[in-house]
Amino acid sequence: MMNDVAVEMEHLRVVRGSRVVLPDLSVTIPAGQVVGLLGPSGSGKSTLIRSIVGVQVVESGLVRVLGQEAGSPALRSRIGYVTQSPSVYDDLSVRANVRYFARIVGADDTAAEDAIDAVDLRDHAGQLVGRLSGGQRSRVSLAAALAGDPELLVLDEPTVGLDPVLRRDLWGLFGRLAGQGRSLVVSSHVMDEASRCDRLILLREGEVLADATLDELLARTGAHDADSAFLALIDRAAQAAR
């Protein structure tokens, strides 16, 4: 059934500048789960995320999101997008930022306040975003996406630069949202966050190295953690290429 699938990509090809970033990528992302998008820097995580959101010019291939073609107008209020570098207004307060983005998607101020609580910024709600720390700014950016209560959340490295306690809390939040039937795609290059995902997509040089649960990955590679499983897969890919 269509409702079990959040994102479907077939033979997606993306060229940025003169560089083929995603040569030919096909992957299906199930709905109602937290799907981790892992891979080294430059492997194409952000490019893939931008393709899902519909802001990336793609050369060919098919991207279907929540049953519709990526980037179609009807999808825009159903997707929450958090860019890799926080995209919020430095010269507005936390509250003003979150309220503005909430109002754009038709959510009310209560939803905005709830989102501020969810990212634990209650104490800073009145503060200018430009005066916050890096991690706090990225949480404002996250809150702005949460406020609209979207069906699909696409988060580009939302936990970068956060302390272990906050990271645990946010991953807990992601899990609860998935429990409520929301779908999440979360990129990260911190492998130990793999254990918080229902499913993993490992990306390397624009190709899907693995698309499985963590347990499947560990069983397949005989490794003990995500880090060594990933390295093992890379070694295998290199050997196969030889």
Binding site: P73, R76, S77, I79, T83, V88, F101, I104
Partner: peptide
């Protein structure tokens, strides 16, 4: 340059 435009254009705006 702050990325807010990309975010807004991905929204219903």
């Amino acid at each position: 340059s702050s990325g807010t435009l990309e975010r807004l254009l991905a929204s219903p705006m």
